[in-house]
């Protein structure tokens, strides 16, 4: 809902965060900079998921599929001698090309059927990467030679740009007529259709946009880890992470995924190297608590409780 005051305020916070992130490489060591890079990665992925699932209510359990496709495309084009930025664009492009037909096919499915179909697609991606040995080297995976990789600063700023771009995209859609129509689909698809919303087209556009981002993110990610194999490209934990981050922060909102990503990543950083299992268990507990007790996410506590919140996931 239009709220000039809040928008002005969060806008300022946004500007401060952008400036901080741009200056950060000056004062941080490689490891700290890599940590921020991963925060941006999660923000970008979360916004992508937010775009389709938070806004339309079509819950995807397999958006990592597009991440995996982008990662493989990025790795392959890089080894075939393309410059890094072109490899990233190819990653996004291939994810987009796949998303168009997949969107038309899967978005006919409702509720759990869509969720399960996406989960299945992610697995199909993993299977293709495993069995297409000539191109992907199968289970061995692909390693990228260090001289092919762009510098950490390049990767950092690319990932930052993706996170920022994804956030601005969500913010833009949020305020547009398109965003309103997506939310109408979430509330009641039949009713939306009856008042003249082209639901199929809207859903597919949202889906394609939300696939494009993980595609590009995946390509940058592979340049950061310099290694990819079927299970790391199509990792199930990445799906969990996207969902938890968005729900924890506040689904269907612009700031929710950012707050969620910040909190979850810090938690993870404190835990993962020492207690990999504890870190995921903590995510599970977070997910349960949020689903049962805090359906609006962290952001709903921060906001004025009396305000009606039409933009929060039911």
């Amino acid at each position: 809902m239009p709220d000039g005051g809040r928008r002005f305020n969060s806008g300022w916070i946004g500007v401060v965060l952008v400036v901080l992130a741009s200056l950060a490489p000056l004062g941080l060591n490689d490891y700290q900079q890599s940590f921020l890079l991963q925060v941006f990665l999660v923000i970008a992925l979360a916004q992508a998921w937010n775009l389709i699932s938070g806004m339309t209510g079509y819950v995807s359990f397999g958006h990592a599929a597009f991440f995996g496709v982008g990662a493989y495309a990025g790795a392959l084009f890089l080894t075939w001698g393309f410059p890094w930025w072109l490899a990233v664009m190819k990653g996004a492009g291939i994810a987009l090309l796949l998303a168009v037909p997949l969107g038309f096919l899967t978005l006919r499915l409702r509720g759990p059927y869509f969720a399960i179909a996406m989960l299945g697609l992610n697995e199909v991606g993993r299977i293709v990467a495993t069995l297409w040995v000539d191109v992907t080297h199968g289970g061995t995976g692909l390693t990228l030679s260090p001289e092919l990789l762009p510098s950490l600063d390049v990767k950092y700023f690319t990932m930052f740009a993706l996170a920022l771009g994804a956030t601005l995209l969500v913010a833009g859609i949020h305020r547009s007529r398109f965003g309103l129509e997506l939310r109408a689909i979430r509330e009641d698809e039949e009713a939306a259709e009856m008042v003249g919303v082209n639901t199929t087209l809207n859903k597919v556009i949202a889906f394609v946009l939300s696939a494009l981002i993980p595609g590009a993110v995946g390509a940058v990610y592979v340049m950061y880890t310099s290694y990819i194999n079927p299970s790391s490209a199509f990792e199930h934990a990445r799906n969990i992470e996207m969902i938890v981050v968005v729900l924890f922060g506040g689904s269907g909102t612009v700031w929710g995924p950012i707050i969620g990503a910040g909190t979850v990543m810090v938690l993870r950083e404190l835990l993962w190297a020492q207690f990999p299992a504890a870190h995921l268990a903590a995510l599970g507990v977070l997910l349960l608590v949020v689903v049962l007790y805090l359906p609006g996410g962290l952001i709903s506590i921060l906001r004025d409780r009396q305000r009606t919140r039409p933009d929060v996931l039911r």
Partner: peptide, 23 residues
């Protein structure tokens, strides 16, 4: 309310500082 959102961002930054202990 404005302050709350700013506070939450500040809170996140403090948390982030915990991640980077002095070497």
């Amino acid at each position: 309310m404005k302050r709350r959102l700013s506070l939450s961002v500040l809170f996140s930054l403090v948390l982030a500082a915990m991640v980077f202990p002095p070497v």
